[in-house]
């Protein structure tokens, strides 16, 4: 008898979004058991790091860590350590702490969060509160993926509201929404044994087809990040990809200096509508993009031609042309 290798794909509401887990290459019952364990890991991260639950690690830290040392779960400690490292590497641009005192023009030289051995944590000021929203989701994805792998599943994907990671020999094609028009597709990115995270304006098909302001706070203006409309980062781990999207959203081109040391690549759409990708970040990116010359920066956007011009429409019409998109379009291949 031929062994039955199935595939399974499931989704649950967790981490304030929908978490989708898929697995392939084992009998269905094994896949479902592995997916159950992976969801359980995500639920555990949710319980530990929810900022809205006063009994979570983050809730307890926000209540007590300003006055004394608080012991946290090793996972929470691991996320905080990564956050502190990123804080130092980005000169304070990536910061999980809110309510730090002092003028904002000078970014915090050191993190407001102090880590002590034995998984203990304290805050350096009374006013400090933390929110791991910019990094914990990526960590949850990594944990869930590790669960699938530990269960012996050969191929799988975990996607928490757009922050995702894949493993196995398959190439996964991810469609990136246009941050200016979230009902439309900007491009497609191939991912294999890697993580991909995206940031942009808050967007929810429940409410509207428009994207709202970003949830990322610019430490200089203390308002929502507006310079970059949307950013996508590919990295070996989803926690790093998740955190680095915030850096790209806040600093744009300047983020390039830091990406290589994390093995990351990125693309972003700036407020003026340009799309930029790091040179290796454009590998495996497909879509109806044309590479502009550096000189073209000063020129107006190319006029719509031919069929495309005839089909200009307020909403996104048919899928017909998207279908044959198995191969990269010649026009989007960088030379």
């Amino acid at each position: 008898m031929r062994p039955a290798f199935d595939s399974a794909r499931r989704a649950r509401p967790l981490l304030g979004t929908f978490v989708e887990i898929s697995a392939r290459g084992a009998p269905r019952a094994d896949l479902d058991a592995a997916i159950d364990r992976a969801f359980e890991a995500v639920a555990e991260v949710h319980r530990l790091m929810s900022a809205h639950d006063s009994r979570s690690d983050v809730g307890r830290l926000n209540l007590e860590a300003a006055t004394h040392l608080v012991r946290v779960h090793p996972w929470t400690y691991e996320v905080l350590r990564a956050a502190c490292e990123l804080h130092d590497a980005t000169a304070g641009i990536f910061d999980v702490a809110l309510g730090s005192p002092g003028p904002r023009s000078a970014l915090q030289a050191r993190s407001d969060v102090e880590l002590v051995s034995g998984h203990r944590v304290r805050f350096r000021h009374a006013a400090v509160r933390i929110d791991l929203g910019g990094i914990a989701k990526g960590f949850a994805v990594d944990r869930a993926l590790a669960c699938l792998q530990a269960s012996g599943v050969p191929r799988g994907m975990v996607n928490a509201g757009g922050d995702l990671a894949v493993f196995g020999e398959d190439v996964t094609v991810v469609r990136i929404r246009d941050p200016r028009n979230p009902g439309c597709e900007l491009c497609r990115i191939e991912v294999r044994n890697a993580a991909l995270a995206s940031s942009g304006g808050r967007f929810d098909p429940f409410e509207s087809s428009e994207a709202m302001d970003s949830a990322i706070i610019d430490p200089e203006t203390r308002g929502p990040a507006r310079r970059i409309r949307g950013a996508t980062v590919r990295a070996p781990s989803c926690m790093i990809a998740d955190a680095l999207t915030k850096l790209v959203m806040l600093t744009g081109e300047a983020a390039a200096a830091l990406l290589p040391q994390y093995g990351a690549s990125a693309l972003f759409v700036s407020a003026d509508g340009d799309l930029r990708a790091t040179r290796d970040g454009s590998a495996g990116v497909h879509g109806w993009l044309t590479r502009g010359s550096r000189r073209a920066r000063a020129l107006p956007r190319p006029a719509a031609r031919g069929r495309a011009a005839g089909r200009r429409s307020a909403r996104c019409p048919r899928v017909g042309r998207a279908r044959g998109q198995g191969r990269p379009s010649r026009r989007c291949r960088p030379r």
């Binding site: 439309c184 900007l186 930029r276 502009g292 495309a308 429409s313 042309r321």
Partner: peptide
């Protein structure tokens, strides 16, 4: 950074 242009009309017609 490599710069790409996204012709608006084309983006609209593919999605």
């Amino acid at each position: 950074w490599v710069r790409w242009t996204v012709p608006t009309a084309i983006v609209m017609s593919i999605a």
